[in-house]
């Protein structure tokens, strides 16, 4: 038996978008909140929609800006040597003919240029790239990370939301992760005790699930698959899971009625058979974290 972590962190992810991550995360969080202090963390900071399911949620605490230290130039001190431009891996600094130009939009705030400038000609100031806001719906806390439109630093917002969520010291944390398998998804699942991969039985989802499995395997995370919209198509998700030795921890059948009420952001808490499935999935996750189930080779 492994020790149960103080805070159980469940990341709900998928390769393909639109498979049902947000709704599954919302209901898993509600099931958790029925017994334990639970927080739902929306880490899909480019398209945060968890709060659409909780229109009655009220704000608790401040909205915290996510800021990043970026360099600016003291032109009098600059010798135009170009050491800063050479050091920047993000193409945010151009040094041409002794003139240094900084594009703060491309800067990731690593501070390397500031450290390497021999003339101390670069100073830093904070710029805002997004925000986190904390809401409450009944006993459930909801933390939303939101990147500003036009920005590209989603990972900074994701890390800020993870840090704020951890500081609240809940018993259960359910993360709604962004789609894909590149940096935003990587950051969102990092540090999770368990990753729930949501798939649907379509050819697209089958293909993208395979990539998502590689992502969680690469990070050495425990994972299981929930097949959502079961019966909606006939792509063989189960075979892929067997082949990759990943447990299917839930099957949620497709119902047009559910799709209709979900479209308007209504929760399905009245749907007894659905909530029972969610409870079972949560139990499977807790069991897996306590034991070695879902361990990826």
């Amino acid at each position: 038996m492994k020790a149960v972590p103080q805070e159980l962190v469940i990341a709900v992810a998928s390769g393909k978008g639109g498979t049902g991550k947000t709704s599954l995360a919302a209901h898993l969080a509600l099931a958790g909140a029925a017994r334990l202090r639970t927080i739902l963390v929306d880490l899909d900071v480019e398209a945060p929609d968890s709060l659409a399911y909780f229109p009655e949620a009220i704000r608790v605490g401040r909205n915290c800006p996510v800021s990043l230290k970026v360099p600016f130039l003291i032109p009098e001190s600059c010798s135009g040597c170009g050491a800063c431009a050479k050091a920047c891996h993000f193409g945010a600094i151009v040094a041409l003919g002794g003139a240094v130009t900084i594009d703060q939009k491309l800067c990731k705030g690593c501070g390397r240029c500031v450290f390497l400038c021999p003339e101390n000609a670069l100073k830093e100031r904070g710029i805002v790239v997004g925000q986190t806001r904390l809401m409450k719906s009944g006993s459930l806390d909801i933390l939303e990370g939101r990147m500003d439109v036009g920005d590209i630093r989603s990972t900074s917002v994701i890390e800020a939301a993870k840090t704020r969520a951890a500081s609240l010291k809940k018993e259960v944390q359910v993360r709604d992760c962004p789609p894909g398998v590149s940096c935003p998804a990587t950051h969102a699942v990092e540090g999770a005790d368990y990753v729930v991969l949501v798939a649907e039985p379509t050819a697209f989802s089958l293909h993208d699930l395979s990539a998502a499995i590689s992502l969680v395997k690469g990070q050495g995370l425990k994972a299981g698959v929930v097949i959502n919209k079961y019966g909606f198509g006939d792509a063989d998700i189960e075979s892929l899971c067997r082949e990759k030795a990943l447990p299917v921890i839930g099957r949620i059948e497709f119902k047009r009625k559910r799709a209709s009420s979900g479209a308007s952001g209504k929760l399905w808490t009245d749907d007894g058979s659905y909530m029972q499935k969610i409870d079972e999935i949560l139990k499977r996750i807790v069991h897996a974290v306590e034991t070695d189930e879902g361990e990826l080779g």
Binding site: A87, C110, R112, F115, E190
Partner: peptide, 14 residues
């Protein structure tokens, strides 16, 4: 270096 968190800036090398 935790690859999943590394932004590949190279600051550590300095």
């Amino acid at each position: 270096i935790a690859e999943e968190l590394c932004e590949r800036c190279g600051a550590c090398t300095d």
